[in-house]
């Protein structure tokens, strides 16, 4: 039977690690969906159709979790019994908080000036910084297995993810 406790990595035939082969993830995802998707079972009975929906839903969920670096890191921590503490732990290093304030100011200014190009530049810079942090996560999770540090990095990335969303919203609002 469908075991929702099965590890997402196992589902796609991957070793549990932050660094994964995204091409293989995608290929496995498509191979599984090709079997379980509701379209493949639409002509069958209620039981098959219900199972297909559950399986396809679960496969989508697992795929999305592993595809994004932030959710993949969070998931790895969880499977190792570590809570990333994004809701509860708000203690951040002063240097990081200072950086955050600078980002917010820059975004706020670009928003007020309705400067699309500035916003796009900020988005590009943010993307770069996030990528560097992904490398940091790889080191903490895969090499040093320092989950405490990784949890901290996840919390920081969550902040940056929020910045990214803010920039996207601002860009969208300017297009309307």
């Amino acid at each position: 039977m469908l075991d929702f406790n099965q590890n997402h990595f196992e589902l796609f035939g991957l070793a549990p690690a932050f660094s994964i082969d995204l091409t293989q993830l995608e290929q496995s995802y498509r191979d599984i969906q090709a079997q379980v998707h509701p379209d493949k079972h639409a002509h069958l009975g209620d039981v098959e159709r219900r199972l297909a929906m559950q399986w396809a839903t679960h496969t989508n969920e697992a795929y999305q979790t592993l595809r994004q670096p932030l959710s993949r890191a969070r998931y790895l921590l969880q499977s190792n019994g570590v809570d990333s503490g994004e809701e509860t732990n708000t203690a951040m290093s002063p240097a990081f908080l200072m950086e955050q304030m600078e980002w917010r100011e820059a975004i706020g200014e670009a928003k007020a000036a309705e400067a699309v190009e500035d916003l796009e530049r900020l988005a590009a810079r943010l993307r770069q910084e996030m990528q560097q942090r992904h490398e940091g996560l790889r080191v903490s999770l895969d090499e040093k297995r320092d989950f405490g540090r990784a949890a901290e990095q996840v919390r920081e990335l969550k902040f940056m993810e929020k910045l990214r969303e803010e920039i996207l919203h601002a860009l969208e609002a300017l297009e309307d």
């Binding site: 469908l2 191979d31 599984i32 079997q35 098959e48 199972l51």
Partner: peptide
């Protein structure tokens, strides 16, 4: 029909699992 559906519930689940295993094995 409903009775047959109930009787095949476990079988359907087993088949789905097997098809997923096969998809990955092929891969």
């Amino acid at each position: 029909v409903e009775a047959l559906n109930r009787a095949t519930e476990n079988f359907a689940g087993q088949r789905m699992n097997a098809s997923v295993q096969k998809a990955l094995a092929g891969h």
